[in-house]
Design a protein around this nucleic acid. Structure first.
Lengths: 121, 121
DNA sequence: ACAAGTACTTACCCTAAAGTATGTATTATG
DNA sequence: CATAATACATACTTTAGGGTAAGTACTTGT
């Protein structure tokens, strides 16, 4: 992960937005490019790291693990590792992560309406 | 023979994600840093450009106008300009933009639950 | 001996998004 | 005449995020 510069305006703005805007708070958590996709794949049940990798072929390993770590740090997913070799690691949604599913659903619903031209008038 | 530069992976991935993932489709529309905030402010009624500027003091004019233009191009907001001087321009949500409000609400609801510790168990 | 599978890690690079600073057109008003 | 107000536009710089490529540790199978 790259170090963040605390003094930058963008960081100050993030502080402002985080305190003032709950939507931005959510964006901070699921705004990463692959995070919604990962969340979606975990919504159908626990997945091993390699299962996620295969389920999302376009994501690079660096991005996958990076986002998984962030999601874990944010308390949205839970990592469980069995002390065996080869490693056996599964990821699943926490209760907070599960609580996000209505958001994901609302998004998907809007996207489908857009594609169906429901809002073209 | 010189090698021809192929299209970047990032663009291919975007194509993949847009087709496969409705959530990413939504992120494309409202993922810009200030867009959710702008949308939120428009949800309470039409606003003049200068009203938005005052309502969101931390945003720069470049970012504000840029995001407004994108939201307009995406059909989420409608711009109305009166041919007077000084200019009088108002922005309001389109039907598609209004259709996004449940998403915003779901996000806000989750954010407040998070802050209230509802998911800490 | 060595390749294969699993779950990462790390160093480096490139680009898109965001920020800074300044300029534009028009008219009313002091 | 100069300033204020409004709604932008634009050249330039910085930063955060994402991508590439390669390596690590450990054990089982051939």
């Amino acid at each position: 992960m790259t170090a963040i510069k605390e003094s930058s305006t963008i960081q100050e703005n993030k502080q402002y937005a985080l305190e003032k805007c709950p939507v931005t708070f959510v964006m901070e958590k699921i705004g990463g490019y692959w995070k919604p996709i990962i969340l979606y794949h975990l919504s159908t049940g626990d997945k091993r790291y390699s299962e996620l990798k295969r389920a999302i072929p376009a994501v690079t390993e660096k991005m996958l693990i990076q986002h998984l770590k962030q999601l874990e740090a944010d308390g949205l997913v839970i990592r469980e590792a069995k002390p065996v070799v080869p490693p056996f690691v599964t990821y699943k949604l926490s209760s907070a992560g599960t609580g996000l599913l209505p958001v994901i659903d609302a998004m998907a619903s809007w996207a489908f309406k857009m594609k169906d031209g429901v809002y073209n008038m």
